[in-house]
């Protein structure tokens, strides 16, 4: 065995042993009264969020409001990932972009079955992703999930009709703009709260601006706004990641 493997094995055994050793001290699996499950924090979210935010999906409430600051950076992480990939791989020169235009015209020559299937699926997929986004308050879903699905619809176009085809619908600069707007929508919501005299991301004050009846509903609506922002960014970046990785940054050809 190579020395590196022995080192790795020893490291793994020691770490694993350490982690197994600590499991003895954990509360029983599924214990509703364990410190984590029965903490004041957890109970507060379960019992109070319906009063404080009127959102039935507790995960959405915690994600977009109580820990909204985290989620903003989560969006930033996605944004960074896309940008980082473009920075590492490059985003195509103008000559290559012209080539994209030309090859997009040859779209019709691609495989018919693929294209027709994609034509059928893409609208449904996009519609469903909008549903997932909008219904995040009531069911599993929200900006990330909706955004990923929307991004997937562009990826499907690229798979079926070639990357240039997808790029002619959502160009890289366009996607970057969309991603930036998404983060701006999220951060801007927080900034508006600050301009109205409250702390950053304190949505309740937005009832002055939003068609919301009161502070609670203002939070409810603001969460949707930030989820939409997240969806913008995720959609754009998912597509950028695919486009860059599948073409090694040249933005032509594709699978």
């Amino acid at each position: 065995m190579a020395p590196m493997k022995i080192v790795a094995l020893i490291t793994v055994i020691i770490t694993g042993g350490l982690l197994l050793y600590a499991t003895g001290d954990f509360p029983a699996w599924g214990d509703p009264l364990s410190p984590a499950n029965n903490s004041a924090l957890s109970r507060h979210y379960i019992e109070q969020s319906r009063v404080e935010t009127a959102v039935p999906n507790l995960v959405t409430a915690v994600l977009a409001d109580y820990r909204g600051y985290d989620t903003m950076f989560e969006t930033v992480v996605v944004f960074v990932a896309g940008l980082a990939i473009l920075a590492v791989l490059g985003q195509g020169t103008s000559r290559e972009r012209a080539a994209i235009q030309r090859s997009a015209e040859r779209y019709q020559e691609r495989d018919m079955i693929n294209i027709m299937t994609a034509r059928l699926i893409v609208p449904v997929l996009q519609l469903f992703s909008l549903y997932v986004l909008a219904h995040g308050h009531y069911s599993p879903g929200g900006g990330f999930q909706g955004g990923v699905m929307f991004g997937a619809s562009f990826i499907l176009i690229a798979l079926a009709g070639g990357l240039p085809e997808a790029l002619s619908r959502l160009s890289i600069p366009g996607a970057l703009l969309l991603a930036g707007l998404g983060v701006l929508l999220y951060g801007g919501t927080g900034l508006v709260c600050m301009m109205l005299g409250q702390n950053f991301l304190d949505y309740h004050i937005l009832h002055r601006l939003l068609p919301a009846t009161d502070a609670v509903m203002a939070r409810y609506h603001a969460m949707l706004i930030v989820e939409i922002g997240v969806a913008f960014t995720v959609t754009a970046i998912m597509f950028i990641i695919y486009a860059a990785l599948s073409s090694r940054g040249r933005m032509t050809g594709g699978l």
Binding site: P32, L41, R43, Y45, I46, L58, V62
Partner: peptide, 9 residues
């Protein structure tokens, strides 16, 4: 609270 999974994780 015991009937609803902890949302934080």
């Amino acid at each position: 609270a015991r009937t609803i999974t902890n949302p934080i994780p």
